[in-house]
Computed example of a mutant assay.
Amino acid sequence: MSPAHDTPTEVTTPGGAPLTVRAPAGTPRGGVVVVHDARGITPYLRSVCERLAAAGWLAAAPHLYHRQGIAETPAVGGWPTAATDMLAFTGPEIAADVDAALAYLGTAGVGEANRAIIGFCMGGTVALAASTRAPLAAAVSFYGGAVSTPYWDGVAPLVELAPALRSPWLGLYGEEDALITLAEINALRDAAAKAPVPTELVSYPGAGHAFHSDDRAAIYRPEAAADAWSRALAFLDEHATKAA
């Protein structure tokens, strides 16, 4: 893989999909597509990309709201607005934007054996779905929803998709999630175990939805967030740093 330390932080793919990119100081150990939560490309999401770059990864976050002409949902509307806005996506649109980000990693010199995906909230849903159809080395889902009921046309519930995972998958969930029940978490763990690849789902007592979002004090859970992030980096190291 070639060095990417001079990569610009905002790029547009040939198909017109914008990406937020963060690159490490030296040669990347691999590349990670970072899929945002329902709020879009927020300072929090950019900080996630920066953390990945600090760990040696070339991070590329597609702006899924670009078809609506925005990078993030209006903050004044809060979660209800974001939850409504995210339902405007379609499965093919999401897949096209993820594929554009993966193609960008390829042009930056990151081979398929070193490309991974990580997502948060609805991005966690996207990460698992992408791992059932795209050539990836690893996938990580932080509290991805639509476990038993789909969000978008063309994207089945996660319990139906999980047995078809094509790359190792790590799920990170809070057991007090108001949007995802503990029964759904357990069902997803069982479904993922049927896949022909290594899978693991870790759930945290006392943590709810978006427990990794350190920009939201009311729901941020530092201990769970730190453990989950450590596990995510270790998972990427294990599965996405193979020789191309």
Rank of each mutant, 00 (worst) to 15 (best):
D237S: 12
L233W: 11
E112Q: 14
A187Q: 11
L136R: 01
E160P: 05
M1K: 10
T9L: 08
V147T: 03
G174V: 09
T13C: 13
P18T: 03
R221H: 15
E184W: 07
L188P: 01
S230L: 10
G154I: 07
Y143E: 02
G109C: 11
T199V: 04
L172M: 10
M86R: 13
A108E: 01
T241W: 02
E112S: 12
T73V: 15
L179K: 09
L102K: 01
L172T: 06
S230G: 13
R22W: 01
R115Q: 13
G124D: 04
A17P: 10
M122W: 11
L64Q: 01
V147S: 05
V35H: 02
A130R: 04
A17W: 13
R22T: 07
R166C: 05
T90S: 15
T27N: 12
A240D: 11
I219E: 13
V155A: 03
G145F: 00
G69S: 05
A25H: 14
S148C: 04
R231D: 00
G144Y: 01
P135W: 00
E10F: 12
T125A: 15
E175H: 08
S167R: 11
T13E: 09
W152V: 08
Y44D: 00
D215L: 10
W169Q: 08
S47I: 11
P198R: 08
Y143W: 00
A191P: 01
A130K: 02
V147K: 00
P196K: 01
G78E: 10
P3C: 14
S230Y: 09
S47A: 15
A116C: 06
E93Q: 14
G15N: 13
A207P: 11
G91K: 12
E93C: 01
